[in-house]
Simulated scan of single mutants.
Amino acid sequence: MAKRILVVEDNDLNRKLFCDVLKAGGFAVEPLADGRDVLVRAREFVPNLIIMDIQLPNISGLELIEALKGDPELRMIPVLAVTAYAGKGDEERIREAGAEGYLAKPVSIGPFMMAVKALV
């Protein structure tokens, strides 16, 4: 059975790219543009990994990671944060929130797939 990945990315082009690359890699993918739906979709889809953009409209990816890690049902799902925030201290802050992986945008396909495979 294919590993399931929830892709949370508000940018249409990035979301499509991530999903296309993951599907080509044999993963079952659920795209999500609105972070407010993450907890509900994570319960329904039961992903093996969540790829989380940090800068989302309405709610920050940091808040979502903290909410996921604070939920007994969802806390074991690894999170790969993908963000344009690549300043000093950003990775540390994102990892402290609970993300197991971190990639700065723009993302290259090779490192992206290596990070995904390391977490599923």
Rank of each mutant, 00 (worst) to 15 (best):
V8A: 08
E9P: 09
E9R: 03
E9S: 04
D10C: 09
N11C: 11
D12N: 13
L13S: 15
N14Y: 10
K16Q: 15
K16R: 15
K16N: 13
L17F: 15
L17D: 07
F18K: 04
C19F: 04
C19V: 12
C19Y: 08
K23I: 10
K23L: 06
V29L: 03
L32D: 05
D34P: 03
G35R: 03
R36E: 14
R36M: 12
D37Q: 15
V40L: 11
R41A: 09
R41S: 06
A42Q: 02
A42D: 02
V46M: 15
V46D: 14
N48S: 15
L49G: 09
L49A: 11
I51T: 14
I51A: 07
M52W: 09
D53I: 01
I54F: 03
Q55I: 12
Q55E: 12
I59N: 00
S60N: 08
S60I: 08
S60V: 05
L62H: 07
L64G: 00
I65S: 02
I65H: 01
L68A: 00
L68D: 03
L68S: 05
L68W: 00
L68M: 08
G70W: 05
G70L: 00
D71F: 01
P72C: 01
E73P: 13
M76I: 13
M76V: 14
I77V: 15
I77L: 04
P78T: 12
L80N: 10
V82R: 00
V82A: 01
A84F: 11
Y85M: 15
A86D: 15
A86K: 14
G87Q: 10
G87D: 05
G87V: 01
K88N: 13
K88M: 13
D90W: 03
E92A: 11
R93G: 06
I94Q: 10
E96A: 14
A97T: 10
A97N: 09
